[in-house]
Simulated assay, not measured.
Amino acid sequence: INAVKNVLGALVNGAAAVFFLFVADFDWTAVLLIAVGSAAGGPLGARLGRRLPPAALRAVIVAVGVVAILQLVLD
């Protein structure tokens, strides 16, 4: 069932990407930076996440979330 979930997620994200290609204007420099960061950060983050103890991983996730929320609220 996990494979079905992944395929459906890819289809939904692909449809959204095609939609935005025709509707939105892009800053292609930002697109490139996000793509490179995602491609590199996914595998590196997974490796780091497997090595951290569960409590430390949860703490990092909560800290990143709090920082993101504060940045959105305060800006």
Rank of each mutant, 00 (worst) to 15 (best):
V64S: 02
L11I: 11
L72S: 12
L33W: 05
A68M: 15
L72P: 07
A17M: 06
L70M: 12
A63R: 02
V60P: 05
I61K: 09
T29Y: 11
F19M: 09
D25L: 02
R51V: 03
A30C: 09
L32R: 08
D25P: 09
L72I: 08
G65T: 02
F22P: 15
P53I: 00
A39N: 06
A10V: 13
N6E: 15
F19P: 03
P43W: 01
A24E: 11
V4D: 06
V60C: 10
V7Y: 11
V12H: 00
F22R: 15
A59F: 07
A59N: 11
V12W: 08
V7G: 00
I61H: 07
G9C: 04
I34Q: 08
F19I: 05
L70K: 09
V36S: 08
D75W: 14
I69K: 07
V67N: 05
A30K: 08
L74W: 13
A46K: 03
V4N: 03
A35Y: 00
A35M: 03
L44W: 06
N13D: 10
N13A: 15
V60I: 10
R51D: 08
F22E: 15
A63D: 01
G65D: 05
L44C: 09
L11H: 02
V12R: 00
L48G: 07
R50D: 12
L70F: 11
G37H: 02
P54G: 01
K5Q: 00
A55H: 06
A56F: 00
F22W: 03
L11W: 04
N2K: 13
N13P: 12
N13L: 15
S38Q: 11
Q71S: 13
L21I: 11
A30P: 03
A55Y: 09
A16G: 01
A17N: 12
A24S: 13
A17P: 05
P54Q: 00
R51C: 01
L70A: 13
L11N: 04
N13Y: 13
V12C: 10
A40P: 11
A40T: 15
V60K: 07
R51E: 13
W28F: 14
Q71C: 09
A40G: 10
L21K: 04
L33D: 07
G65C: 12
A24Q: 12
N2H: 02
N2V: 04
I69Y: 05
I1S: 15
V18C: 04
L8K: 03
L72E: 08
L44E: 04
G37Q: 09
A55C: 00
A68F: 02
A46D: 03
N2L: 00
V64K: 05
G41F: 02
L21V: 10
V7E: 01
A15D: 04
L72M: 03
R50F: 03
R51W: 03
L33E: 05
